[in-house]
Write a protein that binds this DNA or RNA. Structure first.
Length: 434
RNA sequence: GCGGUAGUGGUGAAGUGGUUAACACAUCGGUUUGUGGAUCCGACACGCGUGGGUUCGAUUCCCACCUACCGCCCCA
């Protein structure tokens, strides 16, 4: 094995790719129902696009960014997430202009990159499906995005989903809470884990997220961000809850839920699922939130936004674990068996003719014996075989056989070339094909 | 970046410091000069992740590296 794929990447082979296609198609249809349109942005951007928006000191920027200098000495980065690039495109192309009806709603799907140690469901190149909606600060939009996320996962046949929400409030609320949290944690400083000691000054909210048992004890007594929301923030969050209730979408509030990125404000949410396939207890499959300062941060006008992202790899693991049935979309209608070299031309003609009539058809290309060809047809789950040998060639006929019933009839080749559909209804009374 | 486990054919796997590296599945061929899902027979690793080293001799021992998996960090 001379060459290996780069660390943390994966080849998605045909059997797997079929499933991906199904998931992507399903998502596209659903997004269309919600009137979200596709947007495609570059897989790499100027390093600053991500470093600015994520917070310069965050681990994401300092060690997880897949960055490089190009030949023009430009500092570039492969995108670690979808939102920043979409916002950059939104600003650069002035989608905030008056000719675009608001909110502007887009979705994307594609590769993301982060430089870190791979584990199952966590690769260096991974794939996300995400949505973003700009231009409205109304809680109705928050709820639409959350509802769409739940709807999407339900469409994939997943069960046991749990919507978890929290509010980080606006800038002012968040700043006030940040201070309150530091005031609370500081007296316990020496008791905190080493990691949390560092977090306390860099990003105190993340202490709430600590996995350390003792940290969690301390955090239990910490003030809740929900008590620090100012009037507007509180109103916004209350309305979100009210609307979720009205739509009968169950949710739980987790005041300890935080975000690694700096740009989130107000509503944040995660859709979680309790599956051993992704680890112990509830793990997150889809995460999102509101980011009201981000557009401005990237040079645009003051314009609120909200979105979510979901990881394809994790989704596939989950669907596999929950034994979701993927529809079979690649049925082989007919396999043309040729016996003897003389028949090769005719089999090729028949195969092409069937294809131009919209049938999925294939034949043998290895000059194999009839038995082997039938075996292949059987393995490929072909609905019909069409056999031509020397004698059929002379008589200008072919034997059409239903693999399921074993019924075989002799048909003039001209009829098959004319219209295979008619042949099937005439001889097999089968209207289901194709 | 840190810690742990592992790496044998297309797949799952057994195995040993020394002539031909089990077994099973899959594949291909034959049994049936032209018809599938069964049986039986046969074929199928110039080689045991890569590169060094120890040794008369290494897939088996040692070292480094690569990769995967698990945990930590982090997780947009």
């Amino acid at each position: 094995m001379r060459y290996q794929r780069p660390k943390g990447t994966a080849d998605i082979l045909p059997d797997e790719a079929k499933k991906w296609t199904y998931v992507e198609e399903t998502a596209r249809m659903l997004f269309n129902d919600y009137r979200y349109q596709e947007i495609r942005t570059p897989m790499f951007e100027n390093f600053d696009v991500f470093s600015r928006t994520s917070g310069d000191t965050s681990d994401i920027v300092t060690k997880e960014m897949y960055d490089f200098k190009d030949k023009g000495d430009r500092h570039m980065s492969l995108r670690p997430e979808g939102t920043a690039g979409v916002v950059r495109a939104f600003v650069e192309n002035k989608l905030y202009g008056p000719e675009h009806p608001r909110p502007i709603k887009v979705f994307y799907m594609g590769s993301m990159f982060r430089y870190e140690r791979p584990q199952s469901g966590r690769q260096r190149e991974f794939h996300q499906i995400g949505v973003e909606a700009f231009g409205s600060n109304e809680p109705e939009l928050d709820v639409e995005v959350m509802a769409m996320g739940m709807d999407l996962l339900s469409h994939f046949g997943l069960s046991g989903l749990k919507l978890t929400i929290n509010s980080l409030g606006d800038q002012a609320s968040r700043a006030a809470y940040r201070q309150a949290l530091i005031d609370y944690l500081d007296p316990h400083f020496d008791e905190l884990s080493e990691d949390s000691k560092v977090r306390l000054h860099k990003n105190p909210l993340r202490v709430l997220d600590s996995k350390d048992k003792h940290d969690q004890e301390i955090v239990k007594g910490a003030p809740s961000i929900l008590d620090y929301l100012n009037e507007d923030s509180k109103k916004h969050f209350d309305q979100v809850k009210h609307l979720l209730d009205a739509l009968k979408i169950p949710y739980v509030i987790d005041p300890d839920m935080v975000r690694g990125l700096d740009y989130y404000t107000h509503t944040i949410f995660e859709i979680m699922v309790d599956s051993k396939a992704l680890g112990e207890g509830y793990t997150t499959i889809c995460a999102g939130g509101r980011y009201n300062g981000l557009v401005e941060q990237l040079g645009g006008p003051e314009m609120p936004g909200i979105g979510f992202g979901l990881g394809m790899e994790r989704l596939m693991v989950l669907m596999e674990a929950q034994k979701v049935k993927f529809p079979v979309l690649d049925q082989l209608d007919a396999y043309v068996v040729g016996i003897g070299e003389q028949t090769s031309l005719e089999t090729l003609q028949i195969v092409q003719s069937l294809r131009s009539d919209g049938f999925a058809a294939d034949r043998d290309y290895l000059d194999r014996k009839p038995k082997a060809q039938f075996k292949t047809a059987n393995k490929l789950n072909a609905q019909f075989t069409i056999t031509i040998g020397e004698s059929e060639l002379k008589a200008k006929t072919a034997n059409v056989k239903s693999m399921a019933s074993g019924k075989e009839v002799t048909v003039p080749i001209s009829e098959i070339l004319q219209d295979f559909d008619t042949v099937l209804t005439k001889y097999f009374n089968d209207k289901e094909i194709d």
